[in-house]
Design a protein around this nucleic acid. Structure first.
Lengths: 336, 336
DNA sequence: CATCGTAGCGAAAGCGCTTTCGTAAGCGCT
DNA sequence: AGCGCTTACGAAAGCGCTTTCGCTACGATG
């Protein structure tokens, strides 16, 4: 036993008969060392049960292999499924994940990103478009380019005004699918409860819906909070506007819509059809089961990690996900 | 501008006209320094925009103010609501949160805790009882006592064989409430779809149910996975056992039960009543709305953080939460 | 054969902080 | 006045790692 506690890199070096520098190169860098020596050192390290001290690494090297994940609210299934994918992949790659919540507050995203940067995380994944204040967006862009210039890796899930790697949910075409589905059922006046238009997600989905329903169909769009409560409020407004279908721009909203309609004994889908976006886990279990379009949240999280693990390139990479229309009980033909 | 980049503690010290040591004491320790000097240093730091480098702190001090949170699966609403509470409180206290998933695998908890310890987090919160292998429990206990001896803070949410601070959901009495509710409705043969009995949560809830229903009522208990799928399987088994009510030991199971019954056109609650535990967000929106007992997950997360922030004491502290019976549409009197 | 370039390695200088340890000053005693 | 005790502070020694720099040995080049 050399010293107390866990072995340090010096111990490994000594045991392997090389210098501290070589040991370090063997364990992390890779360049400037022959592969035989490297292999030997790693073997010795393994056998000694050596565990690198992340703080020391962070201090000396600047960055640490932790992934910072920014979500709006981890209690929201949309984000928790993304987070699950991120954590699963990260764990597999021996990276740990630090989570921050922007809590849907303007500026919250910015503040949390700064906080993550302060911790010198090596990578950042931003999930969910924030309140896209122009100024904030600008500032965020600066932060992230500085960060990548300093060797950090960054990726976003679901927004695209930032010049960095992105995982893009297929929002537009998902909108088209839903729109077409409702049009084909025969709906001619369709209510849409949207989130804030400043969100790209919202803009894309609405645009997709428009395209999907085609000409001659009236879309009545109201904008509310991007939550279940927003759905309730929106449905209340649309109830009397003579629509035969209401689309919530995410499942939480759609569930709120269902709830509001049920409260007023409006039958779904006989009186009004309802559809959502995302296909969160519970969409299948609400009453009636929700017609929606599946966005692969879990996989999106995994994609984001994959992007981050690849070394950065000049071009921002973009991964587009698929989507899948899931027709359940909540949609049907309009009243005659 | 002294140097490039962010100011360091030396810069603060210099600007405040004190030594590096004093500056450090002012910023973190607190003892061995007059409050005037400390205040002055802090003011200067603030004004310089000084941000402590966590890695340096971790290296020199040993531990870092990060909170490690271990959940089984962040995609599960039970855990994501707890996580939300933890993160909210932690952020408020300027602590960041690192999340690890045990993924419901035996040994997963142990491995993830070790991984968190390796990162030298200053505190650990373990949410959700794991697969309580005796040996693992023992090992976990050792890890955590070593950790607290080394100055770390640890707390668990919802288990109690570990000699550390704990937030205990009111599982037993929650069970009593549900049991009594069903008994009062007149049910005499009640099915229970339980999770693995190795989970304390499961044992406590079942015991509570037994007590709640009182004598003369038959409880038919089957043990399945602690998930929606487990609920489906369990319901399939109980369907033909002539019960008038089925309790799922958490809402996910109860939702699975609803689903299985619906598939077979068994009406709830007319033919069979269903109840769950936890009151996750969607319990109100499933079909029919689920009778359940509310366990305050979000608050439990916050309590855990509060425990961790308090300095440790000799006695393990225990916070017991409340519970609230939420009667919705899924429960009613049995068929005549 | 002399010269240069290069790859592999070791010595040592930090990264920014916390924390002994030592010293000087202030206090209440006898 | 002298003693010890406490308290406030500074100097300096690391914490465990990465990385620059310099050296050596070797093969390639003219």
């Amino acid at each position: 036993m050399k010293r107390s506690g866990t072995p340090r890199l010096v111990d490994v070096a000594k045991a392997a008969g090389v210098s501290l520098a070589s040991a370090s190169r063997a364990m992390s860098g890779g360049t400037g060392i022959s592969s035989e020596v490297a292999a030997h050192v790693r073997a010795v390290a393994q056998q000694l049960g050596y565990e690198p001290n992340l703080h020391a690494r962070g201090l000396a090297g600047g960055l640490v292999p932790t992934i910072g994940l920014l979500v709006n609210e981890i209690g929201d299934p949309y984000f928790s499924e993304i987070a699950s994918g991120v954590i699963r992949s990260a764990t597999r790659e021996n990276r740990s994940v630090q989570i921050a919540q922007a809590e849907r507050t303007p500026g919250g995203e910015l503040a949390q990103v700064q906080s993550l940067l302060r911790q010198r995380v090596g990578a950042i994944i931003i999930a969910g478009s924030g309140y896209a204040e122009r100024a904030d967006e600008q500032k965020m862009s600066e932060l992230l380019t500085d960060f990548t210039l300093a060797g950090g890796r960054a990726a976003v899930i679901g927004r695209h005004h930032l010049p960095i790697d992105a995982v893009l949910p297929d929002n537009h075409r998902a909108g088209v699918s839903i729109g077409r589905h409702l049009a084909e059922l025969g709906h001619r006046r369709i209510g849409v409860v949207a989130g804030p238009f400043s969100l790209n997600t919202v803009a894309d989905r609405v645009a997709g819906l428009r395209e999907g329903v085609g000409d001659g169909i009236k879309l009545i769009v109201v904008s509310k909070e991007f939550t279940r409560e927003g759905g309730i409020v929106g449905a209340r407004e649309l109830r009397d506007r003579d629509v035969t279908a209401i689309v919530g721009l995410n499942d939480a909203m759609a569930i709120g819509i269902l709830r509001e309609l049920r409260q007023h004994d409006i039958r779904v889908p006989e009186d009004i059809s309802v559809a959502g976006f995302d296909d969160v886990a519970v969409a299948a279990d609400v009453a009636p089961a929700l017609t929606t379009v599946r966005i692969p949240m879990f996989e999106m999280g995994q994609h984001a990690v994959a992007l981050i693990l690849r070394p950065s390139s000049d071009e921002a990479r973009i991964v587009e996900t698929g989507h899948e229309l899931i027709v359940r009980r909540s949609s049907g033909p309009p009243r005659a």
